[in-house]
Amino acid sequence: MRDFDYVVPKSLDEAVARGKQAEHRFIAGGTLLVDLLRLDVERPAALVDLNAVLSERISWAPNGLTAGALARNSDLADHPDVRRELPALSQALESGASPQIRNLASLGGNLMQRTRCAYFRDPGVAECNKRRPGSGCAALEGYSRMHAVLGGSRACIAVHPSDMSVALLALDAIVRTRRSQGGREIAIADFHALPGETPQVETALEPGEIVTEVFVPASGFSRRSAYVKVRDRAAFAFALASAAVALELSGEKIATARVALGGVATKPWRALEVEAALLGRPPTRETFEAAAKLAANGARTTPHNQFKVELARRVVVRALERAAA
């Protein structure tokens, strides 16, 4: 690992200012960044430690959940209010990584997770537009079983790996941040960026801007939510396909539906057509199967990842059945 400086800012404003400096990277839990440092993918001049200037507080109020950016994944997953009020969020967090990593990894860091694309993670591969803008994409002609079928571009088809972010998308979360002009709120749907021609830009954050907390509103559908993840192993693996869903029922009909997909897209993916097809229907397997057919509409597949289209549909059906139960 290359050497780097290490800075502990005394205030959030100082952290923002430090973060704007060239080749300074924020660190919170460090579970991903230390890995990328060791792989020589990240080569910062300095790390700016956010642990002293952010909060790990998790609090539930009638209008929703507020969690500090430092809230550890395990604490958030295990929080009794989160388990009861936002089951999809708790289940998504529990399905990610290992207990050891969840004890270190932070909420903010999970939002900022980088792709697991093997070409991105190997600096010996010359072509990666995320790692070296303009160098090309080795995955397009390479082995792409794990890659995205939705939201990709000619520049990048790397999957966004976060489980938690998929649940936050289904639950309409709001990301609160601090930048030099002050605080702002970013809807989770606008937080992650599509790769387009600039896959190195992964979020809406400006240089130096810091995620300070996340708010998840209590809603008519937040309690009736679920997360289902399919992976190569029974535990501790990234999703081949996953779905976070939430339903609000009115009598025997679906009044509101949220369906978000993970493991298949370049960012946490809202399946709006599936949601529309669920509205006004009874919450039955027949309804779910018909709606789920639309889950991967517009998919662009490679010979290696074609299977994800059908897998995504089935994951959606299973998640809807779990939420409706």
Binding site: I27, G30, V34, D35, S74, P99, Q100, I101, N103, L104
Partner: peptide
């Protein structure tokens, strides 16, 4: 264990 909770020592920088 870090304050009694299990973590990966390889992912934790000693200065932190």
């Amino acid at each position: 264990l870090l304050d009694g909770r299990r973590v990966n020592a390889c992912l934790l920088l000693a200065v932190m």
